[in-house]
Simulated assay, not measured.
Amino acid sequence: MVQEFHKVGVVGLGAMGAGITEVFARAGFEVTGVEIDDTALRGGRSRVAASLSKAVDKGKLTPQEQDAIEGRITFGTDRGALADADFVVEAVPERLDIKRDVFADLDRICPPGTILATNTSSLAVTEIAALTSRPGKVVGLHFFNPAPVMKLVEVVGTVLSEPGTVDLAAEVAKRIGKTPVVVGDRAGFVANALLVPYINDAVSLYERRIASREEIDTAMTAAADLPMGPLALADLVGLDVCLAVLDVLWAEFRTPRYVASPLLRRMVAAGRLGRKSGRGFYDHTREDVAEDLPAGRLAASVRSGELGFDVAGLLLARHIDDAARMIGDGYATADDVDTAMRFGCGYPKGPVELLIARGADAVADTLGAAANAHFAPYDPAPLLAAIVRDGGSTLHDGS
């Protein structure tokens, strides 16, 4: 069925939408990119052109290939141009009122057989689908930034999805060179539901003066070979985005695990959003100066290992435990979890692979020690506890 697709529409040409437009055009599709007005349209067009020019400069595309890709893209401000689209991806800001307007138009304009996909990273796909007269043909297609580079696409079905719609969306993701992970409609999906609480844990350690920002980030890059530490990553993602995801997780699950750090909320209120505002946990307007290590007794106890864990061990243990809880709940498989974190977040090893490397007993011991020291006030996930009890070695044992 994918071969029958010829024309794709993308609504919204910000950083994500422009990247999605480029990805489809690179894969050979005719793409119509639509923005709200001429000013936004010029911005979207320039983003696509700049990205393709950068690829040429790096030798990843020839000038002729760039011309061919750009020739497959039509830009405009009239959503009516999508009347003959086979597949449309919405990539407007994460506000339901804006998406409501977009999907009302698409539902009216596009043929009944057109699949409508939302790139939402935090809103309920089911709620978006219910805004249309074709909820069975609405699906989540969550790309990761930058879309031309990141390989993961979370394909999100709902209780309203028609048979075959989700499978077709996953086929489309493969056709454009992405690795799909197919899941149901749940707050945060896989990657954000695991990544953002981990970032929030790091913010909480920083807020409690357990470790400096450099100490936290260096500990995690050294322990898990991550491309960057959690506080640097928060600055890259945007502190406002992290807070929004946490608030969505809290609204759905109402568990203390998803309560945003007060410091995170205050920094967002102050406009310190990370790289996009110039300052977050780091100052991106100049060469930053490393902070002194916290001198408190609790910080010294963690640094020395006196409490039975260190910064990296604690952050990894809680992160792995979240993955075990997700797998144990039946929301995602162990392979889904590792694929999502490797291809969506740049992890060299996913949480399941990290568990194998560290050992289930060691992870459970760290959680126990942290609970005794009032760092992690909850028991290990039932699946992790069962693996330890039964002598298993990996989350695959219980998935």
Results as ranks from 00 to 15, higher is better:
His142Met: 08
His142Glu: 07
His142Tyr: 09
Phe143Asn: 13
Phe143Asp: 14
Phe143Leu: 14
Phe143Arg: 14
Phe144Ala: 13
Phe144Tyr: 15
Phe144Glu: 13
Phe144His: 15
Phe144Asp: 09
Phe144Val: 14
Phe144Gly: 09
Asn145Met: 07
Asn145Pro: 07
Asn145Ser: 11
Asn145Cys: 04
Asn145Gln: 11
Pro146Glu: 03
Pro146Gly: 01
Pro146Thr: 04
Pro146Asp: 01
Ala147Cys: 12
Ala147Phe: 12
Ala147Ile: 09
Ala147Ser: 13
Pro148Ser: 02
Val149Ala: 14
Met150Val: 02
Met150Lys: 06
Met150Ala: 02
Lys151Asn: 07
Lys151Gly: 10
Lys151Gln: 15
Leu152Ala: 03
Leu152Arg: 00
Leu152Pro: 00
Leu152Ser: 00
Leu152Phe: 02
Leu152Gln: 03
Val153Gln: 15
Val153Arg: 15
Val153Asn: 15
Glu154Trp: 04
Glu154Phe: 03
Glu154Lys: 05
Glu154Pro: 02
Glu154His: 00
Glu154Asp: 05
Val155Phe: 05
Val155His: 05
Val155Lys: 03
Val155Trp: 02
Val156Thr: 04
Val156Gly: 03
Val156Glu: 04
Gly157Leu: 01
Gly157Pro: 01
Thr158Asn: 03
Val159Met: 10
Val159Phe: 00
Leu160Thr: 06
Leu160Ile: 02
Leu160Gln: 15
Ser161Lys: 06
Ser161Cys: 07
Ser161Tyr: 08
Gly164Tyr: 11
Gly164Ala: 09
Gly164Met: 12
Thr165Cys: 08
Thr165Trp: 05
Thr165Glu: 10
Thr165Lys: 11
Thr165Pro: 06
Val166Lys: 04
Val166Phe: 06
Val166Tyr: 07
Asp167Ile: 00
Asp167Asn: 04
Asp167Glu: 12
Leu168Tyr: 05
Leu168Asn: 01
Ala169Asn: 07
Ala169His: 04
Ala170Arg: 09
Ala170Gln: 09
Glu171Gly: 00
Val172Ser: 01
Ala173Phe: 14
Ala173Arg: 14
Lys174Val: 08
Lys174Gln: 13
Lys174His: 05
Lys174Phe: 00
Lys174Gly: 07
Arg175Lys: 15
Arg175Cys: 10
Ile176Gly: 05
Ile176Tyr: 06
Ile176His: 06
Gly177Tyr: 12
Gly177Asn: 08
Gly177Phe: 11
Gly177Ala: 10
Gly177Leu: 11
Lys178Leu: 03
Lys178Ala: 03
Lys178Met: 03
Lys178Phe: 04
Lys178Gln: 05
Thr179Gln: 14
Thr179Ser: 13
Val181Thr: 05
Val182Thr: 08
Val182Cys: 04
Val182Ser: 02
Val183Ala: 03
Val183Tyr: 02
Val183Lys: 02
Gly184Tyr: 00
Gly184Asn: 03
Asp185Trp: 11
Asp185Arg: 11
Asp185Tyr: 11
Asp185Gly: 14
Asp185Gln: 13
Arg186Val: 09
Arg186Ser: 12
Arg186Pro: 06
Arg186His: 11
Ala187Asp: 00
Ala187Asn: 04
Gly188Pro: 12
Phe189Val: 09
Phe189Arg: 12
Phe189Gln: 09
Phe189Tyr: 15
Val190Asn: 01
Val190Asp: 02
Val190Arg: 01
Val190Trp: 02
Ala191Ser: 15
Ala191Cys: 15
Asn192Cys: 13
Asn192Trp: 10
Asn192Phe: 11
Asn192Gly: 13
Asn192Pro: 15
Ala193Ile: 01
Ala193Arg: 15
